[in-house]
Design a protein around this nucleic acid. Structure first.
Lengths: 252, 252
DNA sequence: CGAATAGTTGAGCCTGGTCAACAAGAGTGG
DNA sequence: CCACTCTTGTTGACCAGGCTCAACTATTCG
């Protein structure tokens, strides 16, 4: 079985290559031509698989690479001295992690897999160098960072000005839209995070999240069965949650 | 008086030039050498002065330029359909506005002057082009955007997990630190925004902000006289507000 | 100087947090 | 495959932080 290593490597690298990745229109390669994607490909270190609960990096780690999610999901969390947690984001395939570390070369948050998750590792300094040579890549990188800023600011509004029920509705809509963009059913999905995680994301107690999911179900807007969510009335949900996280994203 | 236009223009452009700007170590020019700063200078459109209440751009405006604050202060605000407001940031000299618009080429928030404010306008597409040629500029741009993401995520923690008194303390510390970085007295400063603005930033009612400023004064941590704030006990304030907005900033 | 805006303080209420008990899944080993 | 345990989720009772409404005071601005 050790007689065809070249073939094995080649198959592996094709599988992981950006140019054959179904996510390339959602990820860094967006807008790049074949040659540029190949250049990007050369720089990407091959896949890494994390199991549920494993961390990709921790608060304070120095920045070595950015990470793109191929499959699965992650959460990023910030921490206060007294142990209070804020989930700063849930991340789905095609999304880029670690960009908040560029400023200080240290990660200001930790990233943990919510389920078995596959990751592409993109050495950061090489990426920056390549971005100088590939205008489309620089642009896409700036766009992704700008999108993250706009998303976070939308989240500031969610936390600062929305009532608890609105926050939960907004969050569900966001998941729904992001699932749909991945080509999945936006009306039915499974949450990969706990009620606690949702509460730490939405600035609510886990009991409140649970109660509000129940209430939204009673109101006929959704159906809940543990972590399985079915959207029953998108319109009513939107009138509560303000259209979800606005995500005038990379494809706009 | 119209007989020396050349001289007048020249003086004006020297005054506005990045290379002679006291803020260059806090702004885009950080880390650039003389030649690169000059290239950046050529691209910057000259100063514009906004009076209190004037807007630099509004939600939905298309992105033409980024803006650096030379003097004064601004707030950026997001809006919900029903009129609820979230202040997404207060901005002091040396800070860059508009980077959240890169993603969609449209500003997702409005920017309004809190007092008489001077602005440098940096045409965005020209800046992106220049960043391809000047590695230090690309890096600084990425850093500034990364810093904004880290700041916003810190703010998510403030809104999601801090009690009202902690939020106010954290906000005051942040102002204090940013004033100090501008070479001003970090222990005594004048707020340029109303209690309403602070509330819209911190996710609180304006009455709550007012009450908590009074309470912090009673507790001996600060002195308040209208918009004049004196920090009396930084340590106690930090133990409340968690060290202010972490701002391991551009100079790190 | 008067009007309008901004800030302070009080009273009462309500949303969402805390504490607690229980139920339902998920993972493990016999 | 089932029993046991541990984790996760649900629901209730009660409490309190912060919001709303309101009256009053202090500034700012014309």
């Amino acid at each position: 079985m050790a007689d065809t290593p070249a073939t094995v490597i080649s198959i592996a690298s094709i599988k992981a290559a950006c140019r054959s990745c179904t996510l390339k229109e959602l990820c860094l390669p967006l807008g790049l031509d074949e040659a540029d994607i190949n250049a990007l490909d050369r720089l990407i270190r091959r896949r890494q698989t994390l199991k549920k609960g494993q961390t990709l990096y921790r608060l304070g780690d120095s920045l070595r690479a950015l990470y793109a999610i191929r499959q699965g999901s992650m959460k990023t969390t910030g921490l206060m001295e007294d142990g209070r947690v804020q989930v700063t984001g849930f991340h789905l395939p095609g999304e880029l992690l670690g960009i908040d570390a560029i400023n200080t070369d240290q990660h200001p948050c930790s990233a943990e897999a919510l389920e078995t998750t596959e990751i592409c590792e993109i050495p950061y300094h090489a990426l920056e160098d390549l971005a100088l040579k590939v205008p489309g890549l620089q642009h896409q990188l700036l766009r992704i960072m700008s999108r993250e800023i706009a998303r976070d600011q939308q989240m500031l509004m969610t936390l600062g000005r929305m009532a608890a029920e609105e926050r939960v509705a907004s969050c569900l809509l966001s998941f729904s839209q992001r699932h749909a963009r991945l080509g999945r059913d936006g009306a039915h999905f499974k949450l990969s995070m706990s009620r606690q995680d949702l509460g730490d994301y939405l600035g609510l107690a886990l009991e409140t999240v649970s109660r509000l999911l129940s209430r939204l179900q009673e109101e006929g807007l959704i159906e809940v069965s543990g972590r399985h969510i079915t959207i029953r009335n998108v319109h009513a949900l939107k009138s509560l949650g303000g259209g979800g996280e606005m995500d005038r994203s990379a494809s706009g």
